[in-house]
Nucleic acid binder design. Structure first.
Lengths: 192, 192
DNA sequence: AAACATCTAGAATCTATGCTCTAGATTATT
DNA sequence: AATAATCTAGAGCATAGATTCTAGATGTTT
């Protein structure tokens, strides 16, 4: 076997950089140029541009989930949810490339038209998160209703994401975490 | 003179529909097909794809501003700001095509690389809004600081937009306005 | 060292889509 | 009706960028 000069992770790193700069308009040629490889070498690792981007997305989402779940392991459920909300912002600040890569797709749409080789991974990537959010909804409210389930999702995930989104391509203001926590606190209170 | 079979507005309507379905990946051919015109007729009205999309964006933004400013004319400044926040959601719900079209560009980036014919319009389109938000910041807080200015912008604009964004391609949940108002109220309170 | 597997190289091909071009149709004006 | 201005038609051109192909390099195994 030959020693790989260009690793999968190396290519994904380059792709992430390019995504940070050009969004979903990334070109294979730019990624290749950035790692110093010819485009052919990219296709040796990934079957298509689409497949490459999905792999990048998966890697970034997994990295985020680690931080996000850690923030959600706090005992007190309210604090856990607010910690998760805050971690969306701090992760974006600390890992802008991953944050930009995560914005390439939305899971729901991706499952439907993704290369077969990735479908399973994409389909289940959020399972653990959903489970934890359900638990926390239970702990926070006692009796869980549909509305409360949704409030939890908005407070801990969708809302914070909405607040950071404008800053995915710039840098995150230092006061943003406080804004997110205040907002999410208010949203959770709507369920009481 | 010949009577125009395909009007500017008609083409933009078709483009808006296409944007609602395919986002920024709209193809000229699809727009043409939807109005029943050959692609050449599109180019008779618009110099380029870019120019067409910018015109569409401008039209949608103007329509939104009308609703948004109306909501902000309320006497009480806190109520005015919350009304504006809420109108972001209701406008998106009631005019999904325009909402999707507005998401095509962000003004700040657009000014820099827009066809010359649109630059002026793009550059000044937000002026009236900024003016009104400044007034309201003054009325709401008395002494205006940089932080308070930002809180107002987030509470009345960026935040609400973040909350609706996930629903630009689906339909807006009926409970979303209440969530936005709760959130924005909390954000404004951070300035007290 | 011979045979093998894997990886790199990068030119060549394919494809999608924006855009141009010229002929002709349509309506207003005189 | 003649003329002019504007608009439609839609085939064809141009280009960007993804993808493929094949020769050769590089390391591994026996």
């Amino acid at each position: 076997m030959a020693l790989a000069k260009f690793t999968t992770d190396g290519i994904l790193d380059a792709a992430a950089e390019e995504v940070r700069n050009h969004g979903s308009a990334v070109r294979i040629a730019s990624i290749a140029a950035r790692v110093g490889a010819p485009t052919g070498s990219i296709y040796h690792r990934f079957g298509s541009r689409e497949e490459l981007l999905v792999h990048l997305w998966l890697r970034s989402v997994r990295r985020f989930h680690e931080v996000y779940l850690a923030a959600g392991r706090t005992e007190d459920p309210e604090k856990a949810l607010l910690g998760m909300a805050e971690s969306v912002v701090t992760f974006t600040r600390d890992h802008p490339q991953d944050a930009a890569s995560m914005a390439l797709f939305r899971q729901k749409r991706l499952v439907e038209n993704t290369p077969d080789s990735c479908r399973e991974a994409v389909a289940h990537i959020n399972d653990e998160i959903h489970e934890r959010l359900s638990e926390l909804a239970q702990l926070r409210y006692g009796r869980v209703t549909e509305k409360r389930r949704q409030l939890v999702r908005i407070a801990a995930a969708d809302g914070p994401y909405g607040f950071v989104r404008p800053y995915l391509w710039d840098s995150v203001p230092e006061w943003l975490p406080a804004v997110v926590v205040a907002s999410s606190t208010a949203v959770l209170a709507l369920g009481d």
